[in-house]
Amino acid sequence: MRPTRIVFVLVPKVHLLDLAGPAQAFTTANDLGYGYELSYVAESEEVMTAQGVPLRAQLDWPEIEPTDLIVVPGWRSPSLSPVPPIGPEVRQRLRDHHASGGSVASVCSGADALGASGLLDGRRFTTHHDLTDELAARYPRGTMVRDVLYVVDDRIITSAGIASGIDLALHLVAVDRGAEAAARVARQMVVYARRNGDELQESAMLRHRGHLSDLAHRVQDVIDVQYAERLPLSDLAGQVGVSERTLTRIFTTATGLTPLRYQQLLRLERAEHLIGHGTTIEAAARTVGFEDARMLRRLRSRTTEPVAG
């Protein structure tokens, strides 16, 4: 399968972390075998960053397909210049890629480039909190969403900037390659996998991966794959080479849940997805591993995270 190409558009005074955060996430995903290929393009071969580090970029754009992604990292912008530092050719490429079915993303002030290309019209978007008022006034045909990490609207993905570019990239990896892939990338990068954009991004795989316990991660790896199967505590303990008591203590300390509670939470989330797409409660319960629908109904009736019955 052809790797997904991520094309970063570099502009003068680009912020290193706006670029490096998502670039590292996609590179790590590729190192783990998830199939990404990164390219860096600009309107000049050398681009000076806001931090004074010069970068080399390609002048010629690679061949891109609708499954690929264009990312515009932000640039130094205590206040925005009257015109974004991208030329008409780049703006047209952004428009054409989106029109062909592709996705376009921005980090921080990169949203200004998307707005100048007309891609924010009629869509929700976000940016760094210092720029929200200015961009909201500049692009009144769009809807500014404040105080969130990222917003996804019709294949236009905007993020708040700086470190939130990592959250944006992890979300896109989760969408493209699955939540388990995003969790592995986050773990490799030693970051807390929040995934909380403006919509409910409540993946249990990621919400309970914000710890540094290797043992708990290994147990979660097993449960994530086999959540619909019967997983006795003795089998889990045997797979990771510790006693049941040690496993329960370490896992609960790291995640706040027992292994059984974590498994039930995964089952519940998957069942809710199936029900939301028209599956009956009974069929959803069987699919996720419950013997009948009673436990699923019980878990759905609770307002907090599920506990063992």
Rank of each mutant, 00 (worst) to 15 (best):
R138M: 02
D60I: 11
S159Q: 12
D121I: 04
D167S: 11
W75P: 01
L170E: 07
G110D: 12
R95M: 11
D133W: 12
R138I: 04
V104E: 10
L59G: 15
I156G: 02
P54S: 07
V190R: 12
S103K: 08
V104A: 11
G122M: 05
A183H: 05
A160L: 06
A136I: 04
Q188G: 03
A113C: 15
E180S: 13
V104C: 10
A169L: 03
R155I: 03
T158W: 02
H97P: 13
G178S: 15
G52S: 02
A113D: 10
V152P: 02
W75G: 14
R194E: 07
H171N: 15
E89T: 14
A136V: 04
A174I: 05
F125G: 00
P140Y: 08
E199R: 09
G101R: 04
A181T: 00
V148Y: 03
Q58S: 10
I64N: 06
L80S: 01
S106Y: 12
L170H: 07
V185Q: 03
G102R: 03
I70D: 02
V104W: 05
H97R: 06
R123Q: 06
V151S: 03
C108H: 07
A179I: 01
E199A: 09
R195K: 12
C108Y: 00
S103L: 13
N196F: 00
T132I: 11
S117I: 08
R124K: 15
P78Y: 13
R187A: 00
V104T: 03
T67H: 15
V185P: 06
R91F: 00
I166G: 07
V72R: 05
L94R: 08
L80H: 07
I162V: 15
D176S: 14
A182R: 11
G165E: 12
A137H: 08
R95T: 09
S106D: 02
L69Y: 12
I166A: 01
A182H: 12
L149E: 04
I162P: 10
C108E: 00
D154E: 15
P73M: 08
L120N: 13
D68W: 13
A99Q: 07
D133F: 01
V152R: 11
D154C: 10
S164V: 00
V90G: 07
Y192N: 05
D112Y: 10
A105I: 08
M144F: 00
R56N: 02
L149I: 05
R187Q: 14
A181W: 04
S164E: 07
V185C: 06
R177S: 15
G178W: 07
A160H: 11
D96E: 15
V104S: 04
V173R: 05
W75D: 09
E199Q: 10
H98M: 07
S159E: 12
E63W: 02
T126K: 08
D198Q: 14
A179S: 10
D96N: 14
R124Q: 13
G142H: 02
S106F: 06
G87C: 10
V175W: 05
P54N: 01
A179H: 11
T127I: 13
P62R: 06
P88L: 09
R155S: 13
I162N: 15
A57D: 11
L149G: 09
L131G: 14
W75A: 10
V53K: 01
P85T: 13
V72N: 11
P73E: 04
S81R: 15
V151Q: 00
